[in-house]
């Protein structure tokens, strides 16, 4: 692997293992507050990712075993699974995961060559193609009138016969959706926020999930697996943009804390935007990358056609990485400045 990994001595496998470990608090909170359905999604995505990875490695003439064991496919699978609605149908999970592994990762040249973050490509493909199925979010248990066991969740995901009333009882609009819907009905932010789906800072349940992802991210930072630049810049970008809009018109734009404590922002800031392959590599570049992605997240959430903007924001910034890297390359002492002709 090239330079971006900060910890020189750690192999890809070790880094990936730490990333997976850092996601565990988030997963635990997810199960605790939203029910065990996410475990089925995670398992299905993992199996699909490994199968897709093995098939592509074979087709490309690589030995399967060492690459499968580097865990990178599982990281992609988990990040995608955690971005999907917990009760999404199985074919949605399989399609998204295969797209991430086969197209976004291997057709672009495999680990280290992919321009875009594979998990986010998978997510984007799904939200663009199947917007209806991407709304099957499980509501926080303290608000729903029913709950599903692990077995029932699996039945829902695999398309088994579940009474529609049960399904309606456990699914709910996410806080971001609820805010958007309320604002479109000419309600003010304060009026919308009186709904039970909104908690202290973010959404009920969702804010704790965000906190758990934040905790995992801080562990990665403490272990120096990720640097502080991207997450801090991303969070600052979200906070400043949302704060500016909120300050400008508090009735029409959600509070900055609300936007910050959506789980997708924490997951994006610490686990996705920090991807060393598809992200910026220079310290200054990382700051620009993070700020840009945070800014676009709020812009897309506020004016875009889809409920959340984290995935699109990160993909757009992935696209800008070569440019960012070129203009933030530390100048070699005595060398010419980038973009300026030396004086004749």
């Amino acid at each position: 692997m090239p330079a971006p990994f900060i910890l020189d001595r750690s192999s890809v496998t070790q880094v990936m293992a730490w990333v997976l470990a850092a996601l565990l608090p988030g997963i635990a909170v997810y199960v605790w507050l939203f029910g065990p359905g996410i475990l089925v999604t995670l398992a299905l995505a993992t199996v699909t990712a490994l199968a897709g990875e093995a098939a592509m490695l074979k087709a490309r003439g690589y030995p399967a075993k060492p690459f499968l064991l580097d865990l990178s496919a599982i990281v992609t699978a988990w990040l995608l699974a955690l971005s999907l609605p917990a009760l999404a149908p199985w074919w949605l999970i399989v399609t998204g995961t295969l797209f991430a592994i086969v197209v976004a990762k291997h057709l672009y040249g495999g680990l280290g060559q992919n321009i875009f973050n594979p998990a986010m490509v998978g997510y984007a493909v799904l939200i663009v193609s199947f917007p209806l199925q991407m709304t099957q979010w499980a509501g926080p248990l303290e608000l729903t009138s029913a709950s599903l066991t692990l077995e029932q969740s699996a039945t829902v995901i695999f398309g088994g016969d579940v009474p529609k009333t049960t399904l309606d009882a456990v699914t709910m609009a996410t806080p971001l959706d609820a805010l958007r819907t309320g604002l479109l009905q000419q309600l003010t932010v304060d009026e919308v926020m009186t709904q039970p789906i909104f908690g202290h800072y973010g959404g009920t349940g969702f804010e704790w999930l965000a906190a758990a992802f934040l905790l995992g991210g801080l562990v990665l930072w403490a272990l120096r697996i990720i640097s502080w630049h991207v997450p801090l810049a991303f969070l600052a970008g979200v906070w400043l943009t949302a704060g500016f809009l909120h300050f400008f018109d508090a009735g029409r734009f959600g509070a900055p804390w609300f936007h910050l404590f959506a789980p997708s922002v924490m997951l994006g800031a610490f686990f996705i935007a920090t991807d060393p392959v598809s992200g910026a590599t220079t310290p200054r570049g990382k700051l620009i990358f993070g700020l840009g992605a945070g800014f676009l997240t709020i812009v897309i959430r506020t004016w875009g056609g889809y409920p959340d903007g984290v995935a699109f924001a990160i993909l757009l910034l992935n696209l800008a990485v070569p440019l960012i890297d070129q203009y933030t390359q530390p100048r070699v002492y005595g060398g010419a400045r980038k973009g300026k002709e030396p004086q004749a």
């Binding site: 917007p131 209806l132 709304t135 099957q136 309606d168 958007r180 819907t181 479109l184 009905q185």
Partner: peptide, 9 residues
Amino acid sequence: RAGATITPR
């Protein structure tokens, strides 16, 4: 349709 009520509204 479930999941898309803003438009019909």
